[in-house]
Design a binder for these strands. Structure first.
Lengths: 163, 163
DNA sequence: TGATCAGTTCGATATGTTTCGAACCAATTG
DNA sequence: CAATTGGTTCGAAACATATCGAACTGATCA
């Protein structure tokens, strides 16, 4: 039984739920990732994770490997210790931003397709909604530019840190 | 058998998929709504919808009522006709914007909670990520303001139309 | 060499969701 | 009144997904 405060447990569930909804994680993947976000970054061993999540080895294994593949999690080793230690990568915010970007680009192309179809097949309806649609498109463009600008800011920040 | 071009069928599937992913619709709800978006706005009868989607009456009924509850769909009647005619409401873009707004506000409060927790329990980690976190928070604020401004623009547009 | 440790793989089980069919209801029609 | 129309309700079937247990691998240790 790995110790963990009630407060932390609740936060883990809440954050985990959020990652289920917004990043399509499984419940367990959400919990694992939440545990890592709420830590000093020194990494968790495999058995600590099974203990904290109360899940089976197999489930932890699969979900952990999924998170590693998606670059949410990385691992490192310590000399004279067979175990691997798992922690969240530092680019969570960047990954999130990239997901936002993809979502918005998808939405833009979809809106364009709908407009194109209605312009050709339902001209009356299209004309009625034209200006509203362009307001929406402008909105998406602004969101997109904000994401791109923020990504650049983050890159600049990372470079400064490294030097 | 209700007629429908191959092009339209494909678009319906694509748009339907998008609504499944981004608005948590069921496959059938997505298809129904897509059909309505790609039309002149004169409404579809219940049996036209079962025909176009090739789904059972019961499924169409439940999903239609769901869409009505969520205000994506409305219905009207014609004199001397028992049937109801269903069409998409005109506020799709507004609903979408409101969903974006809610999502961003949730993300903001979550980021704040994580920061608060790490500030109290993992100060080293928190300090390292502080400026990166504030860049992200600023980003979310800009997105939020853009949504609010767009909502106002849309409201203004609607009022002008009505008068 | 045999035992243990750290983790993986895979088939089975549990859980949750979507769709369906059949029975049903209320309003209209003949 | 019986039959039809337009639609709803609800339990069951179909499908999808998450988690689990048990058997396994490959490295280390005694």
């Amino acid at each position: 039984m790995v110790p963990c405060s009630e407060e932390k447990r609740e936060l883990i569930e809440e954050i985990g739920l959020n990652f289920q909804e917004k990043h399509y994680f499984t419940p367990l993947a959400g919990r694992i990732y939440a545990i890592m976000i709420l830590s000093r970054g020194e990494g968790f061993s495999f058995e600590e994770l099974t203990g904290l999540t109360k899940a089976s080895k197999s489930s932890v294994s699969t979900n952990l490997n999924l998170l590693i593949q998606l670059k949410y999690v990385e691992f490192f080793t310590k000399p004279g210790d067979r175990r691997r230690y798992f922690r969240s990568t530092k680019n969570y915010l960047k990954l999130t931003l990239n997901e936002h970007l993809v979502a918005i680009e998808e939405e833009l192309t979809l809106v364009e397709k709908i407009n194109k179809y209605n312009c050709e097949h339902n001209p009356q309806r299209f004309r009625k909604n034209e200006s509203l649609g362009s307001i929406f498109q402008k909105y998406l463009e602004v969101q997109k530019n904000n994401i791109k600008a923020t990504l650049q800011k983050m890159d600049a920040f990372h470079k400064r840190k490294v030097l």
